[in-house]
Design a protein around this nucleic acid. Structure first.
Ligand SMILES: NC(=O)c1ccc[n+]([C@@H]2O[C@H](COP(=O)([O-])OP(=O)(O)OC[C@H]3O[C@@H](n4cnc5c(N)ncnc54)[C@H](O)[C@@H]3O)[C@@H](O)[C@H]2O)c1
Ligand SMILES: NC(=O)c1ccc[n+]([C@@H]2O[C@H](COP(=O)([O-])OP(=O)(O)OC[C@H]3O[C@@H](n4cnc5c(N)ncnc54)[C@H](O)[C@@H]3O)[C@@H](O)[C@H]2O)c1
Lengths: 205, 205
DNA sequence: GTCTAATTGTTAAATAATTCACGGATAAAG
DNA sequence: CTTTATCCGTGAATTATTTAACAATTAGAC
């Protein structure tokens, strides 16, 4: 199968969300132009993205919302994503309590913290465990992604724990780069950099 | 001045952070290769990025950490960034309490919520106001960026408030696209999409 | 039926970003 | 003072992504 551009994948995930909303509201047909307006993109880009997955629209009509959603899902989603969280602090708690992940088929199956007062608690149905038991619990839960929400000085240590449990994907919220083996994929989410680069863009355009 | 690539800007912001750490630890000289290893990038990319800002390194030696930091800052930073936050919920509170923004010269100068039980409180030194007073307070504080951390069904409404206050930059944490005039810049931070696209990458590489 | 206007899908062109390849500088060794 | 190994800077090549241009399709008007 042809390699699909990374940006096409992230946009396709957004299309799926919009299509869900359209379907829910009873809309059966949508054109690339309508989708484009809803998302602030160009219609060509949307058609180009979709063309990666086959010929699914009809000229003069548009796309059937349900059919398009199905096709996109078949290519870019599959199952529920299981994740474990490290660090049940301010950010970690917000993540645990966020209901949107469930809607997007992301399930947090366990959380870990080194603070004994947090271990044993349940937040939004998710149990908080001691980091000592992480490897054991992760292998039991078949988690696929580890979330790092601990203070940066502990991030590498937690990354090592995640790697040693066999998990191959990490979402890292701490503002430092972690070292992992090549076969482990890391997504860094750095909020400060988002603010600062937005600021740069505002000043230079 | 030559236009600098967007990705070069975000990486340069990361270089600044690493350089700060190196300077703090007493390191005076660093090579592109060392920086590359610390960040998981290639050394060429780092040299190419830096070359946008002039000839600052010395062959056979490397870069003076302090000098490089200064030059990068002159190009990609300037002042403190002032932001206002809408929605003091789980995520909004985490943002208010995060000390890292201060280190990165981002200052949250006011927060707004529609929940009366939150209005009047102070979180980490930041006062929470009623949304009704937002335009007035924003113009007084000279905020440059508005942060949207309200439930998605209110996001467009809050975006309109932010725009009508004259603020030209928005960081949007809600999982929907907001409509704003062309001259307003929006950065969408969509956590679900990060998880799902990471999952895709893990399955296809 | 024929025409028209709308909309898709695709090829080609343009733009953006990365990687390669290597020349030039220079500190340190001898 | 010459050699050598190292590291920077950069033009050219490659790869990735977006945008433009347009042919093909077809529902609906007439
Ligand atoms: N809060 C934000 O808005 C925000 C923004 C950007 C980045 N971050 C980053 O996210 C991370 C978490 O931020 P936060 O604000 O939630 O911090 P926090 O201090 O509120 O929470 C950190 C949690 O991690 C736990 N912890 C510490 N060491 C641990 C370890 N070794 N193993 C397991 N748990 C451990 C602590 O007990 C605490 O519960 C930090 O790296 C921070 O830089 C946070
Ligand atoms: N918590 C997360 O981890 C997470 C992850 C991804 C996205 N998000 C998004 O971030 C946003 C906030 O999430 P959250 O978990 O903090 O939600 P939350 O429900 O905990 O907090 C929302 C806050 O916004 C306030 N609010 C509601 N309507 C408002 C209005 N019109 N004006 C001002 N304030 C208003 C509420 O009073 C509440 O304090 C949501 O859009 C959510 O989809 C959150």
């Amino acid at each position: 199968m042809k390699r699909v551009a990374k940006k096409t994948i992230t946009r396709s995930l957004l299309y799926i969300r919009i299509l869900e909303k359209l379907i829910e509201s009873g809309t059966h047909i949508v054109s690339s132009k309508q989708l484009a307006d809803m998302m602030g993109l160009s219609d060509v880009k949307i058609r180009k993205d979709i063309s990666n997955f086959g010929k699914v629209g009809r000229p003069r009509i548009g796309y059937k919302t349900f059919e398009l959603k199905k096709i996109l899902e078949d290519f870019v989603l599959q199952n529920i994503v299981h994740a474990v969280l490290f660090g049940v602090g301010n950010l970690g708690s917000a993540i645990l309590k966020y209901p949107g992940f469930h809607q997007d088929r992301i399930k947090i199956v366990a959380a870990f913290d080194k603070d004994k007062s947090k271990v044993g608690k349940k937040i939004n149905g998710v149990s908080v465990y001691s980091v000592k038991n992480a490897v054991k619990i992760i292998s039991k839960t078949h988690a696929e992604i580890g979330i790092i929400a601990v203070p940066e000085k502990h991030s590498q240590n937690i990354a090592d724990v995640i790697v040693s449990s066999g998990v191959k994907g990490i979402v890292n919220f701490s503002p430092i780069s972690i070292s992992v083996p090549e076969k482990v994929f890391v997504r860094d989410i750095d909020l400060s950099i988002e603010f600062l680069s937005l600021m740069y863009e505002m000043r230079h355009k």
